[in-house]
Structures are given as structure tokens and as C-alpha cells.
Design a binder for these strands. Structure first.
Length: 219
DNA sequence: CCAGACGTTGTT
DNA sequence: GTCTGG
DNA sequence: CCAGACGTTGTT
DNA sequence: GTCTGG
């Protein structure tokens, strides 16, 4: 599926001619915006899987990127093959709530499936990085309800869209700033230079969280 | 009724 | 300044 | 989100 | 295709 929702009624022959951003969808207005409301009430709900997402923190004029993800099990965290293999095992992927639509080019051809990722206010746990975050479904039950548009009506499903606290994060290299870069360096933790200047407090930086709900972890 | 929009991030 | 591509 | 382009003539 | 503004 293509990221950036192309509404079913889009009239140009090329989706790249869309003149407005549909990569994200504000949860507070998605029942008012035509591009999202229409597919949403038709039950076109999807889940977007990712290792994590990046967000940039404004730090005294500079932008510091962070990688944000579900807390991992100890086993998953130290499984070296996760970093080196294309097919990581034992890694808990982020499950972000999305809306999709289907579009057929006026020239015909295959149906294009495309999606948008819902955004919400940042939760307390990530609010020091940025004031917005993707809507994340925390757990199988939430994921299954979001996907089950046959049984779970829109109004019920919308209750699943809210900020969540259960996240871990760490600062990463600005290598990630150029989206042409797609290397392990994009997600490897870096040490921030927390140079103290007079009268400034050094902020606590969360490097890694363990998952307190996983039996093998000790918080 | 028709015409025109249909969107978010951020910033100030 | 604003848009496109990734 | 950030980085990078932002243009036309002609030539090979 | 469907809603809002005029």
C-alpha cells in the first residue's frame, strides 16, 4: 500500500499530482475531513507496522532526531540477528492505526490502495520530544478491534485512538535526516553531549526502557 | 442551486 | 518561499 | 519530517 | 464522491 491516502474520487491520472498532504490524519478532525471521513465510515481501517518512528526534538535551535518504538524484550533487544538480518525475530513491531482508500486511475489499471496514519497529541512519555505522535494500538485486542470493521462500528473503534505511554526511545544520528539514508546507523543509539550551561538543568534522557509486562524482563 | 474543496506538519 | 522526493 | 530543487536551450 | 460556502 502507498503511504499518503489517495481519495477514491481523485481525478488526475497520477497520484503524485495530489496537491495536499494525506500522510497524516488528525484524530480530532477525521470525522469532518472528507478525505478521511468517507473511507472511515465505510470501515476502511488498517494497521501500519514499523520498527519504530522518528521524531525531531527542538534543542536550543538544533534538531535532534529520536527513534521511538515499543519496549522490547531482553531476548529481542540482544538478538544480534535483528540488526544484521532482513528478517528480525522476536521484535515487537509498532502497530499504528491508519485509514485506507481504494483508487482507480481514470486510465484504468490496478486499484491503488493507499493509507494515512492517524495522529494524536503526544503522551507524557514522549512529550519532551514532540507534541504530536502517531495513534498506536497497544496490544492484540486493540489491533483486532481496529481491523474488525464488520463487528466493531466506527464509534467504538474511535475509542481505540488515543495517546499511549508504553514506548521506549533513544536519540539517533542526524544521518536519518536524509531519507535517502537507510542504514543501521539510522537507529543506533547515540550519546548526547549534555553540556551544562550556567543555570540550566540537564534533562533526564531515556536511553532504553524494558518491558515491565514481559515475564523475562525485570522492568 | 452551483462551485470549489477535499490536508498536516510546523512556524510565527 | 514553496514544492517534491524520499 | 528533512533535503534539495527551484530552468531552458541545445547537444550528445 | 460528498460536503461547505455563497
Amino acid at each position: 500500500m502507498r503511504w499518503g491516502l489517495v481519495p477514491a474520487w481523485f481525478k488526475e491520472d497520477d497520484p503524485s499530482k495530489m496537491q495536499y498532504n494525506t500522510s497524516n490524519c488528525r484524530s480530532d478532525t477525521m470525522m469532518e475531513k472528507l478525505s478521511y471521513k468517507v473511507p472511515l465510515v465505510k470501515g476502511k481501517r488498517c494497521v501500519v507496522l514499523a520498527d519504530g518512528y522518528y521524531e525531531w526534538q527542538q534543542r536550543n535551535g538544533q534538531k535532534q532526531p529520536y527513534f521511538i518504538y515499543f519496549p522490547q524484550t531482553v531476548q529481542g533487544m540482544f538478538n544480534k540477528s535483528d540488526i544484521e538480518d532482513e528478517d528480525p525475530k522476536g521484535q515487537r513491531l509498532l502497530t499504528m492505526a491508519g485509514i485506507f482508500d481504494c483508487w482507480i486511475s481514470p486510465n484504468g489499471g490496478e486499484t491503488l490502495y493507499s493509507y494515512t496514519i492517524i495522529t494524536v497529541e503526544a503522551s507524557k512519555s514522549v512529550s519532551s520530544i514532540h507534541h504530536r505522535m502517531p495513534a498506536i494500538l497497544d496490544g492484540d485486542e486493540a489491533v483486532e478491534k481496529w481491523l474488525d470493521s464488520a463487528e466493531i462500528p466506527t464509534q467504538e473503534a474511535l475509542k481505540l485512538i488515543h495517546p499511549i505511554e508504553n514506548l521506549a526511545f533513544h536519540p539517533v544520528s542526524t544521518v536519518v535526516n536524509n531519507s535517502r539514508n537507510n542504514t543501521p546507523e539510522c537507529i543506533i543509539p547515540i550519546q548526547l553531549d549534555l553540556k551544562k550551561t550556567k543555570g540550566q538543568q540537564v534533562q533526564h534522557v531515556c536511553v532504553l526502557h524494558l518491558c515491565s509486562t514481559c515475564p523475562g524482563d525485570r522492568g
